[in-house]
């Protein structure tokens, strides 16, 4: 085990996969010479050269179409979209190409592409650089969506994503890059579609991904002071969902809180809530609590931004309400 930052873990994953598979290559805005705005690709251009680590112009639409074509023609592209806020520009290639080509050509085409991006608020980057648009991509069948919170999962899931024959959207969070945690040494993969129990509990299940897992852990600590044993489940993969983990936990606690940093209406938390209703209704002892971003732009003012983002206090309140 090695203690490393989340960004370093991603860097290690990319490097290891590039070393072991010469068809893996990276491209994106400022990822080469500059090493990426969040330094995830630092040093990789020097090590692997300009043909495997490419700086590109600003055109997310063209970049994503390029990833699709590159994946179809036998390579394993890893595209970085600097901010998740620009994901709408990638959607045609994802929704109409990457997700359906395997289907249209009866599985003769593999689509081993990874689209890395980062979203989320909390540092005053305003309405165009702080969104969480999980629901936009998780909505599309044929695309896998992962969102790790720990450095270990970041590394293990990125390696698994690169090796996956289907398109994977890899969601990072700008506030996670500098967080340190233990990462297993060597070629350790984290399977896509498997949740992780962060905190064991018996009273209420809190389901979250990415940075919201940290908020959920904070809520669990606060609830513990009231004698409430909250279970925190890091879903890690938004799609395909680890339904077994959800069902097992709710069967134990009979209460569920779903958390997502994206908007409330039609959001990923809404999807989780409906799924729980579909599969766990008779296990529920209270309505599913939903903690998500209000339906509004992210304020530029930091105090206002912090006021509207989902956080530990809001999760704890939702849990207390469900348990009342």
């Amino acid at each position: 085990m090695t203690m490393m930052r989340y960004a370093e873990a991603l860097n290690a994953a990319l490097r290891e996969e590039m070393l072991s598979d010469s068809s893996v290559w990276l491209f994106g805005e400022d990822i080469g010479r500059y090493g990426g705005v969040f330094k995830v690709t630092k040093g990789l251009m020097d090590e692997f050269g300009e043909s495997r680590v490419r700086d590109t112009p600003i055109s997310e639409q063209a970049l994503t179409a390029m990833a699709v074509t590159a994946a179809m023609t036998g390579t394993k592209p890893v595209l970085e979209i600097m901010f998740a806020d620009f994901m709408p520009l990638t959607l045609d290639a994802l929704v109409n190409q990457a997700s359906v080509f395997g289907y249209l050509w009866e599985g003769q085409v593999e689509m081993p592409m990874v689209l890395r991006t980062q979203g989320g608020g909390g540092v005053g980057t305003g309405a165009q650089h702080a969104k969480c648009l999980d629901a936009l991509v998780a909505h599309v069948p044929g695309i896998k969506v992962v969102a790790p919170v720990t450095a270990a999962d970041a590394k293990g899931l990125l390696k698994a994503a690169i090796r996956d024959p289907q398109p994977v959207v890899f969601l990072e969070h700008k506030l996670l890059y500098n967080m340190r945690s233990e990462v297993p040494d060597g070629d350790e993969l984290v399977p896509i579609g498997k949740a992780r129990t962060v905190v064991d509990g018996s009273d209420i299940s809190i389901f979250a991904t990415s940075k919201m897992v940290i908020e959920a852990e904070g809520a669990a600590k606060a609830l513990a002071k009231d004698g409430i044993n909250a279970e925190v489940i890091d879903l890690r993969t938004l799609r395909p969902l680890d339904l077994d983990a959800i069902k097992t936990s709710i069967a134990k606690t009979n209460h569920a809180i779903v958390v997502n940093e994206g908007w409330t209406f039609g959001g990923y938390a809404a999807e989780l809530s409906a799924t729980i209703m579909d599969y766990c209704f008779d296990d529920l002892d209270a309505a599913v609590g939903r903690v998500a971003m209000p339906d509004m732009p992210i304020p530029y003012s930091e105090p206002l931004e912090l006021a509207v983002l989902p956080n530990a206090a809001k999760i704890a309140t939702a849990a207390r309400t469900a348990l009342a």
Partner: peptide, 15 residues
């Protein structure tokens, strides 16, 4: 049946 007389119960408790 008048709504006021319906027993409100969680799904888990009902089961």
């Amino acid at each position: 049946w008048p709504a006021g007389d319906r027993i409100i119960v969680s799904p888990a408790a009902r089961r």
